[in-house]
């Protein structure tokens, strides 16, 4: 399994320069921003970008028609899926950490103040959860339908999710709950929100992994 994780990482070598350019671009955007605002978006942006890099090995494998060869190696189907999940979600964590460090550093560089630790944790866990949630839907779609059809299925699922959120928001509005009340509830949760989000990230990724294993075990190559 270690070999498969290494394979995915080594394939990303060709993106070394792109990653550096993206990080520099993110930093540039931070310094162009109003220095009074904490550079939250750098964490979100880098987590999202790294998340996109994480799924690149799917394309490489599809291009090389590698599935058949990989399954011929002394690795089980579960190990193949697990290796991919460790890679994809590992890269997301690296992206979220890199983004968080950069936002702390850039905040200090521009305001000479450190970000509040609670704020840092919330930004980190929200970015991590958001991108992990997207990938948790996307990865089983790739296993089931391949890259091209998988992306299309992913977009349909996301549109359905957006529709669901909009419907829920409308329902909340009809219950006469004000945004101030929601904000109040969120403030009460502020201390445990990062833990809840990180737990949710783990749960969502685990469910996604289980679905992918099921899909992949039935797949004939």
């Amino acid at each position: 399994m270690k070999g498969l994780i290494l394979k995915d990482l080594l394939q990303l070598k060709t993106y070394k320069k792109t990653v550096i350019i993206f990080v520099l671009l993110a930093l540039f955007l931070v310094f162009c921003e109003n220095s009074q605002n904490p550079p939250i978006f750098i964490t979100v942006l880098l987590t999202f970008w790294f998340g996109m890099f994480g799924i690149i090995p799917f394309s490489y494998d599809e291009q090389a028609n590698a599935e058949r060869y990989i399954q011929s190696l002394p690795v089980t189907k579960k190990e193949i899926v697990l290796a991919r999940y460790i890679h994809v979600f590992g890269i997301i964590i690296v992206g979220a950490l890199a983004g968080t460090i950069l936002s702390i550093v850039s905040c200090f560089a521009t305001t000479k103040e450190f970000l509040d630790i609670r704020e840092v944790l919330i930004i980190f866990s929200t970015s991590l959860f958001g991108v992990s949630f997207l990938e948790a839907i996307e990865v089983p779609c790739f296993y089931k339908f391949g890259m091209e059809k998988g992306r299309l299925t992913f977009i349909i699922l996301i549109l359905m999710a957006v529709f669901g959120v909009v419907t829920a928001a409308t329902a909340i509005e009809s219950l006469n709950i004000t945004y101030e009340q929601i904000e109040g509830m969120m403030l009460k949760l502020v201390n445990i929100l990062p833990i809840i989000l990180m737990l949710l990230t783990f749960v969502v990724s685990w469910i996604s992994y289980k679905i992918s294993c099921r899909v992949y075990s039935k797949k004939e190559v």
């Binding site: 070999g3 090995p57 291009q63 090389a64 590698a66 060869y69 002394p74």
Partner: peptide, 25 residues
Amino acid sequence: ILLDDSFLSEYLTTIDLHKIMKNIY
């Protein structure tokens, strides 16, 4: 194994392939 139409990505070097296979076999 040698399969006619299936192998790992061609964006890897022979050294990369060694690193991968060392951890597989």
